[in-house]
């Protein structure tokens, strides 16, 4: 018999994966539409994230203690496309005049964005594997599962902090709230790493930071909506301002990562 906790954890990671997939779907649809899909490969993240999203929906209705080959393959391909996307975006920056100058980092293909697809794939993969793990002390990547997933989330949070930092720097931190994710995400990541290092402690600090990050992702959408309103023409001119204003689908990826972090901690609690 599979412990229900295991399945719960699997579902949690699926939810994170799906939210990330949704974020990538919306974001890359808008950004690549803005880039006129000049390269046919620009449709790949849309297709991949859409598949990952559907896999997530399928997975949430599946309580069998077995991985699903198709879903798993989808997640793997999402991770692969995420990596390829990052490489492609890097290539894109490097070949422009100025190379790795700030202007290209700010305005050329965003290096951090495809990472979200990678993370969606990785969390999906984790969720699939968790289904097959033994009830007691499951292990993943050579570590107790809760530790490896906590570290994964921490890495994701740090990456997100880097990307948000870059883009909010581009926005000149013109609003004080723009510092919040840049400060909170690394703080949550640090606490999560710390939690993974010292086990069997009540990790309330990490939990609070992750909860805050989770909600910040939600509030961030509202702030971004306000940013759209502050563009010329505001929401009346939504068809242009959604593309040129702060991206609405971006902040939820923070929520997704924080949710996964919380799931990792819950896994430890269930175990101990």
């Amino acid at each position: 018999m599979q412990a229900p906790g295991q399945l719960k954890a699997a579902h949690s990671f699926t939810r994170s994966s799906s939210l990330l997939a949704w974020s990538v779907l919306a974001d890359s649809a808008m950004e690549h539409y803005r880039g006129s899909f000049t390269n046919p490969a620009m449709t790949l993240p849309l297709a991949s994230s859409l598949c990952a999203l559907m896999a997530g929906i399928h997975s949430s209705g599946d309580s069998r203690p077995r991985r699903h080959v198709v879903r798993h393959a989808i997640y793997w391909s999402a991770a692969g496309i995420g990596i390829a996307g990052t490489a492609f975006h890097c290539y894109n920056i490097g070949k422009r005049p100025g190379g790795w100058c700030w202007n290209n980092l700010f305005y050329a293909a965003p290096i951090g964005a495809p990472m979200a697809l990678l993370l969606s794939g990785v969390f999906g993969d984790v969720a699939e594997r968790m289904r097959e793990k033994p009830a007691v002390q499951p292990r993943l990547l050579g570590l107790p599962a809760w530790q490896s997933t906590a570290l994964l989330c921490a890495a994701g949070l740090l990456g997100t902090a880097g990307e948000v930092g870059l883009l909010h720097l581009r926005g000149s931190f013109q609003h004080r709230a723009m510092y919040a994710p840049v400060l909170l995400a690394p703080a949550a990541a640090t606490l999560l790493i710390h939690a993974a290092a010292v086990r069997r402690k009540p990790h309330w600090a990490a939990r609070i930071a992750l909860l805050a990050a989770q909600w910040l992702g939600v509030i961030g959408v509202l702030f971004h909506a306000r940013g759209v309103a502050r563009s010329q023409g505001g929401w009346r001119n939504w068809s242009q301002n959604l593309l040129s204003g702060p991206p609405l689908p971006a902040p939820p990826s923070l929520t997704a990562l924080a949710m996964a972090g919380i799931a990792a901690l819950r896994l430890e609690k269930a175990e101990s």
């Binding site: 609003h175 940013g227 563009s231 010329q232």
Partner: peptide
Amino acid sequence: VSAPRGHSPPCV
């Protein structure tokens, strides 16, 4: 401005 400032929207 490249980002909003008071009543000024970012450059279009």
